Computed example of a mutant assay.
Amino acid sequence: MRYSREELIRFRHCDPAGIVFYPRYLEIVNDTVEDWFEHIGFAFKTMQQRFGAGVPTVNLNIRFASPCRQGDRLQLSLVCNRIGDSSIVLSIRSAQADNPVFEAEVVLCFTSIGERVEKLSIPAEIRHQIQQYLDETVAATA
């Protein structure tokens, strides 16, 4: 199962050469992750309020394939690759008009928020929703 969204490339994304400045892609990756959590019923604010938890990125790998320019519409898709006790691995692929733009793999770790940040086991309610994505992804590739 893939989560999909579209991002309109705006002036704010671009550098003086007229292409997306690469750190903006990292923001787009984070926005996609945040939107996915909201889609599965656990917006970042909800996780903070109900569980005292956040999901910082602990590892990020990204491969760039082609540039985007202002006005392009970037198609993004997210799949869950793995779920551990306190971490999840997500893949995000992007394309513009059938041309790959970038692929990213993101490892997130559930942690407490506040003064002392500590690793947490993924809360059961959230794990259930993420597991559904993982199971459907595995079934779709079998």
Results as ranks from 00 to 15, higher is better:
Arg2Asp: 08
Tyr3Phe: 15
Ser4Asn: 07
Arg5Ser: 09
Leu8Ile: 01
Ile9Asn: 07
Ile9Cys: 07
Arg10Lys: 12
Phe11Val: 07
Phe11Lys: 03
Phe11Arg: 07
His13Ser: 04
Cys14Ser: 10
Asp15Tyr: 05
Ala17Leu: 14
Ala17Cys: 03
Val20His: 11
Phe21Met: 05
Pro23Val: 04
Arg24Ser: 15
Leu26Phe: 14
Thr32Gly: 04
Thr32Cys: 14
Val33Thr: 14
Asp35Phe: 06
Trp36Leu: 08
Phe37Gly: 01
Phe42Pro: 05
Ala43Ile: 03
Ala43Val: 05
Phe44His: 10
Phe44Met: 10
Thr46Cys: 03
Met47Ser: 08
Gln48Tyr: 01
Gln48Leu: 02
Gln48Arg: 12
Gln49Lys: 12
Gly54Trp: 05
Gly54His: 00
Val55Glu: 08
Leu60Ala: 02
Ile62Pro: 11
Phe64Pro: 11
Ser66Ile: 06
Pro67Ser: 14
Pro67Lys: 11
Pro67Trp: 02
Arg69Met: 13
Arg73Leu: 14
Leu74Cys: 10
Gln75His: 15
Gln75Tyr: 10
Leu76Pro: 05
Leu78Trp: 02
Cys80Val: 15
Ile83Tyr: 01
Gly84Gln: 11
Asp85Met: 03
Val89Gln: 15
Arg93Thr: 13
Ser94Asn: 04
Ala95Glu: 15
Ala97Gly: 01
Asp98Leu: 03
Asn99Ala: 06
Val101Gly: 07
Val101Leu: 03
Val101Lys: 12
Ala104Trp: 06
Ala104Gly: 10
Ala104Cys: 13
Ala104Pro: 13
Glu105Met: 12
Glu105Lys: 14
Glu105Asp: 13
Val106Lys: 11
Val107Pro: 08
Leu108Asp: 12
Leu108Trp: 09
Cys109Asn: 06
Cys109Gln: 14
Phe110Glu: 03
Thr111Met: 06
Thr111Arg: 05
Ile113Thr: 11
Arg116Tyr: 00
Arg116Lys: 13
Leu120Ser: 02
Ala124Tyr: 06
Glu125Val: 02
Ile126Trp: 10
Ile126Lys: 01
His128Phe: 01
Gln129Pro: 02
Ile130Thr: 10
Ile130Leu: 15
Gln131Ala: 13
Gln132Cys: 00
Tyr133Glu: 11
Tyr133Gly: 12
Thr137Cys: 03
Thr137Asp: 14
Ala140Tyr: 00
Ala142Trp: 00
